[in-house]
């Protein structure tokens, strides 16, 4: 499903973020990307939706080399990926419901079907009762769950989350991870980058551990 081979990423400033990274993730797997800040976790995740392009090596998603995709092809790649961003990227000028609706605006759903999907996604993350609220009225954990609802509303085959528990207390962090596990149970491939070793130990899944841009085990 996702396969990296000899991937290196050097940023324009000369910083080497990834160095000869190779791994393969099968459909339906749940994988933690572990490592300290600056180990290259975010860079690795950004290569999958082609937000960044590798300096060398290849990144295949569903057999497609995403590093060499044309600009015009990127939207269609990204629609099949659910992404939970490190900074969440919620829009504070609209309701919880409208935030989740956003990815459906450029899909082929009519209004009623889209609304049904939005409610289903909000229900899965436990925010259905807050659909008219503004994101600012939500707690940190609720905002994170809103970001997840928006990522899954399109029913993507792959769910990617960059430090989804960074600013949450332990209980909320476990809640978030359980939501990811429930999506994984119904066949969604899940990649979660985190530096939280306790969380990784608790969920006992496959771990790709990064240190200074390379996989260490």
């Amino acid at each position: 499903m996702i396969s990296f081979s000899a991937v290196a990423k050097r940023y324009a400033g000369g910083q080497q973020a990834l160095n000869g990274v190779g791994f393969s993730i099968a459909q339906g797997e749940f994988v933690f990307i572990a490592g300290h800040s600056g180990a290259g976790k975010s860079t690795l995740l950004k290569l999958i939706p082609a937000i960044e392009r590798p300096s060398s090596g290849s990144v295949l998603v569903n057999g497609q080399n995403v590093g060499s995709l044309q600009r015009a092809a990127l939207p269609y790649l990204r629609r099949n990926l659910g992404i939970v961003f490190q900074d969440q990227k919620l829009l504070y000028d609209r309701s919880v419901f409208d935030n989740v609706l956003l990815p459906l605006a450029f899909s082929d759903f009519d209004g009623r079907e889209a609304a049904k999907r939005v409610r289903a996604a909000l229900d899965k993350v436990g925010l259905l009762a807050r659909d008219r609220a503004s994101p600012v009225q939500l707690s940190g954990g609720e905002q994170q769950r809103l970001a997840i609802a928006r990522a899954v509303v399109n029913r993507p085959a792959v769910l990617i989350a960059d430090e989804p528990t960074a600013n949450l207390d332990a209980a909320s962090a476990i809640e978030i991870l359980e939501i990811f596990a429930s999506f994984n149970q119904v066949g969604v491939t899940v990649l979660v980058a985190t530096h939280d070793e306790a969380l990784i130990a608790r969920f006992a899944r496959r771990v790709l551990r990064l240190a200074r841009g390379s996989i260490v085990d």
Partner: peptide
């Protein structure tokens, strides 16, 4: 909003 739209697959 534009940035987000690009990230989640808007043409």
């Amino acid at each position: 909003e534009i940035e987000l739209a690009k990230l989640i697959g808007a043409t």
